[in-house]
């Protein structure tokens, strides 16, 4: 009769589990499912407050689609670099794995740089978290996403410098896989944010003066 092995923490060999998925990987996916609700709440808040700002600046006055398209592209390519890093790590090619890992971190930093410049430009144009609902919801949503990217960059750099000194082990490959899952998740959140807030939401604010005026009259 085939019986499942039950060893737990037995001398570094990864225990077989009921589901055949390692504990850490399952934890990561449950965390990502949970994080869906986290970003979902922020995006829903943004959407509930679409076109509800009482004063400008409005999205169509500040959003810069060409620049953000470039940063979106950078983040997308960092995802590709991440998957390549993992792929080479799984094939025991530590040098290439480390190269792509550093590339991911670098692309992540470029993305963050774009975001910092974007935020500073917006503030110069009069959009702050205090200014209106658009400013509040936009900065906090993209700011929390940026925070996730920043955490990811720290994680990746930490792994690139601390974990990959010696030979690759199945454990450190799995570490890399966890970081990769997190990184790709951050990327897909940005896919949603870019489409919903930048591309679809860009026209928000055209002719908003009259609309908010009307709302004020109705008492909406």
């Amino acid at each position: 009769m085939a019986q499942a092995a039950v060893t737990q923490n037995q001398h570094g060999h990864i225990a077989d589990t009921n589901t055949g998925i390692s504990n850490r990987k399952l934890l990561m996916w449950v965390f990502l499912a949970s994080d869906c609700l986290f970003f979902g709440s922020f995006i829903a808040t943004y959407l509930v407050y679409r076109n509800e700002s009482l004063v400008g600046p409005y999205p169509n006055e500040v959003l810069n689609i060409p620049v953000t398209s470039v940063s979106t592209f950078v983040l997308l390519m960092s995802s590709l670099a991440m998957v390549l890093a993992l792929n080479y790590a799984q094939k025991d090619r530590a040098g290439l794995a480390r190269f792509w890992l550093l590339a991911v971190a670098a692309l992540g930093l470029v993305f963050l740089g774009f975001q910092v410049v974007e935020f500073m430009t917006f503030v110069d144009e009069g959009l702050t978290i205090h200014q209106n609902l658009f400013g509040t919801t936009f900065f906090i949503l993209t700011g929390f996403h940026g925070l996730h990217v920043f955490v990811g960059v720290l994680w990746l750099l930490g792994m690139a410098f601390a974990h990959f000194k010696g030979a690759l082990t199945s454990r450190s490959t799995e570490d890399l896989e966890m970081a990769g899952l997190y990184w790709h998740f951050v990327d897909i959140v940005w896919i949603v944010i870019f489409t919903v807030i930048y591309l679809i939401g860009f026209s928000d604010g055209e002719g908003i003066e009259t609309i908010s005026h009307a709302t004020a009259i109705i008492g909406g």
């Binding site: 589901t19 399952l26 990502l32 869906c36 990769g180 790709h184 897909i188």
Partner: peptide, 27 residues
Amino acid sequence: VVAFFMHLRFDKNLLSLVFASGFLLAI
């Protein structure tokens, strides 16, 4: 991205179920 970069296409179905439940519930 989810299917290929995050390997859900290659992994156990349970992981897809876990992630889809969170994502679809949010939607």
